[in-house]
Simulated scan of single mutants.
Amino acid sequence: MTTSGAGHTAGEKNILHASLNRHRDAVLWKLDGLDDEQLRRPMTPSGTTLLGLVKHLASVEYGWLVETFGRAGEPLWFDPYKDEDMSVAPGETTEQIVAFYARARAAADRTIAELPLDAPGRPAWRDVSVSLRWTLVHMIEETARHAGHMDILRELIDGATGDHRPVTEA
């Protein structure tokens, strides 16, 4: 989904959603042109990989923007509470992880479209109530933070830099 220019003068929900989409798109752009080995290559002492960050972001989109608001997510094949969402197992494919992220985004987008910003939610893993507005801001922060990590990892892999896909002239 390309969001360049979207949301600059829209209502609050549309602005927040456009900001989230901009960072989501940057996450996917960081994968472009890399092979499977590069996407899985641990680039930090903790083992952080580009593909692991995508898996993590999919997991937190389901948690914060789907399950928190009482909507059904998909069954996970890993345990995010044991940080299994930050790593990619040998049997997991790039296509599987990217498709997982696409499904998480679509499910989250349905929540965003269907609920007002003041809709209450309650994450199962925390004893707190949150609004959709707070959750959108949180997901923008989370996605932007990890997109920044991905920018650094990508630069270490092949020297490519930039926080967002360049706009190409038609």
Score class of each variant (00 low, 15 high):
Leu57Gln: 06
Leu57Val: 08
Ser59Met: 05
Ser59Asn: 07
Val60Gln: 00
Val60Pro: 00
Glu61His: 13
Gly63Glu: 09
Gly63Met: 14
Trp64Leu: 09
Trp64Ala: 11
Glu67Trp: 00
Thr68Glu: 04
Thr68Phe: 06
Phe69Gln: 03
Arg71Gly: 15
Arg71Leu: 15
Arg71Gln: 15
Ala72Glu: 13
Pro75Glu: 15
Pro75Thr: 14
Leu76Asp: 08
Leu76Asn: 07
Phe78Ala: 02
Phe78Pro: 00
Phe78Val: 01
Asp79Val: 11
Pro80Phe: 15
Lys82Cys: 08
Asp83Ser: 02
Glu84Arg: 00
Glu84Val: 02
Glu84Thr: 01
Glu84Lys: 00
Asp85Ile: 03
Ala89Lys: 09
Ala89Cys: 11
Pro90Trp: 08
Pro90Ser: 14
Gly91Met: 12
Glu92Phe: 06
Glu92Ile: 06
Thr93His: 01
Thr94Ile: 11
Thr94Gly: 09
Gln96Pro: 01
Ile97Ser: 02
Val98Tyr: 07
Val98Ile: 15
Val98Phe: 11
Phe100Arg: 02
Phe100Leu: 10
Ala102Asn: 10
Arg103Val: 06
Ala104Cys: 11
Arg105Cys: 14
Arg105Asp: 10
Arg105Ala: 14
Arg105Lys: 09
Arg105Gly: 09
Ala106Phe: 12
Ala107His: 06
Ala108Asp: 04
Thr111Ile: 06
Thr111Val: 07
Ile112Gln: 05
Ala113Cys: 07
Leu117Phe: 03
Ala119Leu: 05
Ala119Gln: 06
Pro120Asn: 01
Arg122His: 15
Pro123Cys: 10
Pro123Trp: 04
Pro123Asp: 06
Ala124Val: 04
Trp125Cys: 09
Trp125Ser: 10
Asp127Trp: 09
Val128Gly: 10
Val128Gln: 14
Val128Thr: 14
Val128Asn: 11
Ser129Lys: 00
Ser129Glu: 05
Val130Tyr: 00
Ser131Ile: 09
Arg133Pro: 01
Arg133Asn: 07
Trp134Thr: 08
Thr135Lys: 04
Leu136Glu: 04
Val137Phe: 10
Val137Tyr: 04
His138Gln: 02
Glu141Gln: 13
